[in-house]
Amino acid sequence: MSSYSFRLYVTGETTLSREAEANLRALCKNRLVDDYEIEIVDILERSALAEEEQIVATPTIMRLAPLPRLRVIGDLSDHERAARAFGLPGPAIRDEGRG
């Protein structure tokens, strides 16, 4: 089982959805190597899951593990800030984000 687990909530195939997924994957790969899992939830198909967590904005990314759970809203275009928000370790290589 991985140390880090994320769930990305999106609403369909939008630019924001794609950006968020790409940024999250890049961020994890760079900082967590392969010690992470990402689950993607499309609210258009699984609205009950959004209901459970009272998700209002998309993209919303939840850090499920390690506890405590954390939530970040946005496409994570600023990798440095996103990493801080998720409490990720320093990068293996310099981030490519706008940060």
């Binding site: 909530y9 999106v10 609403t11 369909g12 939008t14 924001l16 950006e19 968020a20 940024n23 609210i43 258009l44 609205s47 959004a50 209901e51 967590e53 009272q54 998700i55 209002v56 904005a57 998309t58 993209p59 919303t60 405590p68 759970r69 954390l70 939530r71 970040v72 809203i73 946005g74 496409d75 994570l76 275009s77 600023d78 800030r81 996103a82 928000a85």
Partner: peptide, 30 residues
Amino acid sequence: FIDATLTSSPQDVVVGDYDLGALIARIGAA
């Protein structure tokens, strides 16, 4: 009821662009 209150969820950090698609989708589904 659609619960879109903030009280029970942790304070969200905003990083980058977003929309209220989740809310619109939840309302639409309900």
